[in-house]
Design a protein around this nucleic acid. Structure first.
Lengths: 209, 209
DNA sequence: TTTTCATTGTGACATAAATCACCAGATAGC
DNA sequence: GCTATCTGGTGATTTATGTCACAATGAAAA
C-alpha cells in the first residue's frame, strides 16, 4: 500500500495524515466470506476498507442475519471508529463479500488524530453521516415497502456492487432479507416474466434499465 | 438557563465549554406538537434538548410518518451536529412531544469546539453512537418482530418517557407504527385481556411489570 | 338537551407472506 | 454412470396484516 494508493482511496486528507496511516496501520487480507467483526466482539481498532466489498448485518437472537448495507473500498466502518474510543463491543456483523483488504488502526490514534487533523475529523463525521443515511434508507425499505419492492431494491444494490451477474442462490437472498426461499423464488419468477432479469442456476442476471 | 443547569444536563464537559455554550446558544421554546425540523430543511445549527421530549420520524413519499426514536433533555440531535458542518439538509422530521426547550448553536462553533474541546468531541461521538444504536434497534423491531411485539415494545418506550398513562389514540399509535387503527385496537384488546394494560378513552394505562 | 363528531369495537373479507409438501433438474462425489 | 445433495419450481394451506363497513359510545358543541 503506497501513499498514492491511499490518496486515491481517501482523498482530502492532510498530507502528514497519509504518512501517519501508513506507519501505524496494519494491513489485513481476508477472503470472500470471512467474518471481519462479530456481534459482541470488542472493538480494538478502526477499520478502513482499501480493497473489496464488505457486507454489514444485524443479527437477531436466533442468529438470523439481516443485511443492512455494503462498505466499499474508500469507506470506513463507522461503528469501529466510534466504538474504538471507548473499547466498546460491536453491534453488527461484518463479512467480506469479495476478497478484501482492510487497514486496521489501533484505537489510540483515533483520539490523537481527531484533535490534530481537521481532515480526519471531517472524514469521521462524514463517514458517520453516510452510514446513518444508509440505515435510514434501510428503515424506509422495511417500514414502507412490500417484499417485491425490497427485492428489486436489493438486487439493484447488489448489481451496483458486483455487476449484473449476481452469484447468489435464492436462499442467500432470502436470508439477507429475512424471508423464505419460496417467496424469493416466486418474486424472481415474476420479475423474469417482466424481463427485468434472467434466472440462472446459482445466479441471476439483472437486465432492467 | 444557568451554568449549573447545563452541568446537570450535560455532565463531563469542560468548564469553559459551558460558558461558551451559554454565550453562543439561543434558547428556543416550543409547544407540544410543534415541528422542530422538517425533512429537507437546511440545518443551520446544532440542537441540544434541555427540556421536554422530542420525537424523531422518518417520512415516506406520501407523507406517512414512521416513528424512529425519542430525544430527551440532555441529548442532542445527532444529525444536526453532523449536517451542521456542511450545511446539509435534514433526513428526518422532529416534533416536540411535550413542551420543550432547545439550545440552538450556530454551526460555526461545531468545528471550533470539536478541535478545541476534547469533551465536546467525545460528546458528539457518543451522541452519534447512541443514536446509531437506536436506529439499529428500530431495524431489529421491524425486521424481526411481528406487530404484537412491536406494539408492546412501543408502548413500553412511551411509558418510560411519559409514565404509565399514555395519552394517545389508537390512530396515533397506528400512525407511528405505520399500520392501521383496527390492527392496533385489536392487539390492544388482547393485551387488555392479558391484564398488561387498561384501555381508556384517548389513553391507555400500562400495567404490566 | 340535543346534535355532532371523534374514538373505539368488531365482523367479514382481501392480500401478502410464511410454511409445508413434494417434485424435477443440475451438480458433485463415488 | 449412479447416487446423494443442492437448488429451484409450484400447489395448497395457514397466518398476519390490511381494508371495508358499520355500530356503539362518550365527549364536546350548539
Amino acid at each position: 500500500m503506497t501513499k498514492e494508493d491511499l490518496q486515491v482511496l481517501f482523498p482530502d486528507l492532510e498530507n502528514e495524515l497519509y504518512d501517519e496511516i501508513l506507519s501505524n496501520a496494519t494491513v489485513k487480507h481476508v477472503k470472500a466470506g470471512d467474518t471481519l467483526l462479530k456481534v459482541g466482539q470488542t472493538i480494538r481498532s478502526t477499520m478502513l476498507i482499501t480493497e473489496g466489498i464488505v457486507k454489514l448485518y444485524r443479527e437477531d437472537d436466533e442468529g438470523k442475519e439481516f443485511f443492512i448495507y455494503h462498505l466499499n473500498a474508500g469507506q470506513a466502518c463507522s461503528l469501529s471508529m466510534v466504538c474504538a474510543t471507548r473499547h466498546e463491543t460491536s453491534e453488527v456483523l461484518a463479512k467480506a463479500l469479495t476478497d478484501s483488504t482492510v487497514l486496521s488502526i489501533p484505537l489510540e490514534f483515533m483520539d490523537q488524530w481527531m484533535s490534530h487533523y481537521k481532515t480526519w475529523y471531517q472524514f469521521v463525521i462524514s463517514s458517520y453521516r453516510n452510514r446513518f443515511e444508509e440505515l435510514l434508507k434501510t428503515i424506509d425499505a422495511i417500514a414502507f415497502s412490500n417484499m417485491d419492492e425490497r427485492l428489486e431494491n436489493y438486487i439493484k444494490k447488489q448489481a451496483e456492487q458486483l455487476g449484473n451477474h449476481i452469484k447468489m442462490t435464492h436462499q442467500d437472498i432470502a436470508n439477507d432479507l429475512n424471508t423464505s426461499r419460496e417467496v424469493i423464488s416466486r418474486l424472481l419468477k415474476k420479475m423474469e416474466n417482466k424481463n427485468w432479469l434472467a434466472i440462472h442456476r446459482n445466479s441471476i442476471e439483472w437486465i432492467k434499465k
